[in-house]
Each structure stands twice: as C-alpha cells, then as structure tokens.
Design a protein around this nucleic acid. Structure first.
Lengths: 318, 318
DNA sequence: GTGAAAGCGCTAACAC
DNA sequence: GTGTTAGCGCTTTCAC
C-alpha cells in the first residue's frame, strides 16, 4: 500500500509537494507536478479516503438511506440523485436498515437523504445534532437542519379523486398503506378533501402495508362484502396490483365490476392487464432536484423547498 | 461536535480512559466505564468514522457495486448480503457507476462485492493491488485477491434447454444479452451443449442488451421472419418479457405459436400472462453465502468457492 | 486502573 | 517553488 510518503521518497521531494501536485495546486511547477503524477500512477497510488476525510473534515459523499432495494420506486429516484451528485463531484452511497443507522451515527457522509419510514423521527433528530444537512423525503419533520422534500401527495390524490368522481364512481373506498406514514396520510387527506367537496365521504377504509401481498388480502375481504365499493383508491401501486390480481382471479371485471387506482406509477403498472391508472411522479427529475438542493445546502447557499408535483395518468383500471 | 477530548474533559479523565471505556476494555473499572458511557450518551457522542478508520486501518464496511438500482435481480441479493453482514458487525453500502469507481480507488471499505459489468476487468485488477478482498459475481477473473462467486449458468441453462427439447420444440433460438458478458456467454454455452447432445444446433441468434426494450425490438424482427423459431430461449427474464409482450400485441399465442423462456425468475415473471418459465436462483441465500465468504476472507479463513445453483421453473410460456 | 504520547495518512499554514 | 511541521480524532503501547 503506497502512501504519500512512498511517492515523496520515489520522487525525491517532500510529502507536501506530492500533496500539492496531486491536488493541482498551482504553486508547483508543471514539470514537478507531472513528474509526481507519473510516479503516483506508476505506483498505483490513490490517496486514502480515511486520512483525507479526517483531515478535510468531509467525505465528499452523500448517503441515501432507503427502506429496501426491492421497491420499484427507488430505481429512478436514485438514478436522478446520483446523476446530479456526480456533476458536483460527490459520491453517492446507499444503505438500508441498521447499516443506515451506523452510517448516520458515525457521520460517514457529508449529508444524508432519508427515505425509510423505519428510521424514527427521534433518532433522526438526535443524529441531526452532529450531522447536517439531512433531507427527508418520507415525512414532515420540522428541525433546523432537517429539510423536507416530499411529494405533493395531497394535491395529487385530490386530483385523482376528482377524476375518479367525474367518471361516475359513487362508492369509493380507500386502501391505506402503513398508517401514520406521511405518504399514506397525506394521500388520504387529498382523497377526503375531494370527496367532501362533492358531498361524498369515504365509502370504506382498508389497511395494508404498501405491499402487493397485503393488497391481495384486502381483495379477499372485499370479495366477502355484501355491499361492495365500485372503486378502490389505493395509497400506492403495489397494493393496487395485488388487489387487481386477486379480483381478476376471482372473475371480477376491472373496471367493469370495480375500478382500481394506484399511486407512484411504477413500471409494472403499465404492463399489467388492465393497465393501472395511477399518479405519475417523475422520480428521476425529483432525484435531481433533491441532489441539487443537497449541494446547495452543503455550499451554504439559499434553497427553496417545494413539494414535488406529478400527473394523474388514467389508463384502463377505472 | 463532541469529540473524545470533550468527553474526557467532562469526565475529568484522559482520552485513553474514554476510549477504553467506550470500547469495553476490561481494565477500566465498571464504575468509571459506566460514568463515561453516561456522559457520552448525554453529550450525544459517537466516534468519528473518519478518525477511527484511519487509526484502525479498516472501516467495518463492505461495498457492493451494482450496475443499477432498477434491476429486479438485486433486491433479494442485497437483502441476503446485508442480512449476513450485519450478523458479523459489518455495514453494507451500495454504489453504482463512477461512485463505485471512487469508493474502490480510495479503499472506502474493507472489501468489495462487484456485480456491474460496466466495471472493467483491468480497472478491477488495478484496484485489487491495494484493496482486498474483492468478490466478483458477474465474471470470471483469475487473480490472487479476486474471488469468483458466480451462478452456475452453464449447467442451469443446459437443464432448461433439455426440458425445452423434451417438450417437443425443434427450432430453438437464443437471445443474447450483452455479448461477452459472463452471464450471457455461459448461459449460451449451456444451451449449445444441450442442443449438441440431441444432435441439434441453435436455430438462430439474436442480440439484445438484457432490457425489456431490447426484447421488444427483437420480437419485431422475429415477426418479420418467414421461417420463425418455435421456441425463444432468452439470456434473462426482462428480455423474455419484452418479447412476449410484443408478440402478444401482435396476436401471437404463447406458447401456442412460439414458446419463450427466461433466466433469473424475477418477480414480474410470475405476474405476467402467460407466466414466464425461467430458471429460479435463490438470490437471498446466494447473497448470504457471498457475505459469509467475504467475512471468512476478511478473517483470513479458508473459503470454498462454489457456483450458485438454481432450478428450472416451467410455468406457462413453453 | 489510569494517563501520556506516538502515530494512522493526509492537508495546509507557514517558513524559506 | 519546495520543505517543515502541526494536527484532524481516534487507538494502543508503554509507564506508572
């Protein structure tokens, strides 16, 4: 393991000269700088992140904490974040579960982007004392060094519900994802607001956990009902897909017998038959916006915090 | 930002005592140790990863470099790796693209697991000079400190092909993913071996890039053919799904007119109609095995390198 | 059982 | 334009 000392020895100069040369400090002559760079390359030298991080008191790394790598939602989002961070010479690392906790506690990055409802508010607040900035995508958390960059769930679900109503549905049920999760509650709020405005109320509520499997279970309950909803608005796509599959397997026609809608517009949604109606979020550009904000925060620039917008996509399922 | 010095000052003892206490060194009396731990907690102290990494010359972190976060294959694999690493007190971080390159060059982890064909062999070899161990999942790379833990593609595709033949298919075409990629080539080898044994040869070859979209393009070409294959064996599921969708949209019956098979058995495969036949890899347990091997390597224990097995799952598509 | 001090590999202020 | 050196925040050897 070649260190800066070895390069200095090989180049017959001091370690500071090596450091300056490799960091393109312009007080080193081009001749020396190039010579040193050549030697470093030959010796396969790369500065140790550990040493550099300690000295510089930064890592040029941003941590993104997500709840799981399976969620189809994260794909474009992470791509967007990465795309933008790289432009600003930052490295992106992604973690889940206890790995996220450790990374946060130990301040292994210069900033963190959180999209994992399993991480508790109190934990984040404690972390935020030593570690800033933190951007949260999955909750509203008012704290000086925590920034909330969420989706505009309420408005979007409001719009979707209005569209659903305009297509003549009367008995509109809602399928909750995880209760108390920000995304779920704000979507529910939007639904209720739209229904209220039309003098309606929620026909019935069900509670899943954002997974396809929980959707299938709920569908089984619905099948048993005497007075069934004619429309099932779901808090996300995966539950909607689970519900549709189960209903279809039991010979229900969608949207003939019951309409279904989702939220997020994951890829799968447009491959399913019937194609799921949903709310499309451009996760890639949202990701870019998040990363831009992160960089601005790191640079102590002013940022503007705006909720991410989207569009209602009506396909075949209602 | 409280450092160890601040804790020492608050506890009126030396920094070494603090360090010992927090690391549970048994020469510190319980009374002192507990007192120090209390103070550390009150002051919201967590040791700096940067300082600790530099001193200890390790990070207790394993890097997993993947090609993208969208691939449905990675979900279970990463879960498996994480699950096992956490048991051994390691943290898992995941990266893509240039972020992976930087992390590797700077040795920001104690070991790396590579599943990204965009990372070049030569780059890995260079990195491996300073950074070990490296486990590669997506290629065969013979180097002292690089370990190959791949899927047994050849045998598995051989088995699938045999099964296909046994169901009476005669004109068997192959759809390549990225040419020269290990997974692709070894799967192709298995196919050819099975065909040869039955006195057959590949009816026709097509080349995509492992994506659904490339599959759809290939389907368009197939539709134009006068002499069509009766079976299309694909190098992965996503291309198979793309092909099926395009064929179905053009009123072909699957498997009536043409049979299709995939590889990997991603979740989507069993939701599609018709359900895709594929080769199921238990990515979660493969991930655990990979992580176990990584920990053994880190502990300088002996490891045994075995290819990951799987099972042919015949569903509805052939 | 506790403390002093060296040093991990860098960066950067300062001296020349 | 180059070198000397302090120090980032820890761990750990060696004294006591």
């Amino acid at each position: 393991m070649a260190t800066i000392k070895d390069i200095a020895k090989a180049a017959k100069c001091s370690i500071s000269t090596v450091s300056y040369a490799l960091n393109n400090d312009n007080r080193i002559s081009d001749r020396t700088a190039n010579r040193i760079k050549m030697i470093a390359k030959e010796m396969n030298y790369f500065p140790s992140a550990a040493a550099r991080n300690l000295k510089r008191q930064n890592t040029k790394t941003i941590l993104v904490a997500i709840s799981d790598f399976g969620g189809p939602v994260y794909n474009e989002l992470l791509d967007g974040i990465h795309h933008e961070l790289v432009n600003h010479d930052y490295t992106m690392i992604v973690s889940t579960g206890v790995s996220s906790d450790k990374m946060l506690k130990q301040r292994s990055a210069d900033g963190a982007i959180i999209s994992d409802i399993n991480i508790e508010d109190n934990f984040l607040k404690k972390v935020a004392v030593n570690f800033e900035p933190i951007i949260v995508l999955d909750r509203q958390l008012k704290e000086d060094t925590i920034f909330n960059l969420t989706i505009d769930n309420e408005i979007l679900m409001y719009n979707l519900t209005k569209d659903v109503i305009s297509h003549g549905y009367k008995k509109i049920a809602f399928v909750h994802g995880v209760k108390n999760a920000y995304d779920n509650e704000s979507r529910f709020l939007g639904l209720k607001k739209a229904l209220n405005e039309c003098g309606k109320s929620v026909f019935r509520e069900f509670t899943g956990n954002f997974t396809k499997e929980s959707g299938a279970e709920i569908a089984k309950d619905i099948i048993k009902l005497d007075n069934k909803p004619d429309m099932i608005v779901c808090s996300n796509d995966e539950m909607a897909l689970g519900i549709m599959e189960e209903l279809i397997n039991n010979n229900y026609k969608i949207p003939g017998d019951i309409g279904v809608s989702g939220f997020d517009d994951i890829m799968l949604s447009s491959y399913f038959h019937p194609k799921l109606s949903s709310v499309r979020i451009d996760h890639f550009s949202w990701g870019k916006r998040i990363a831009k904000t992160m960089v601005q925060l790191l640079n102590k620039e002013k940022v503007k915090i705006e909720k991410e917008q989207g569009t209602v996509i009506r396909r075949e399922s209602y």
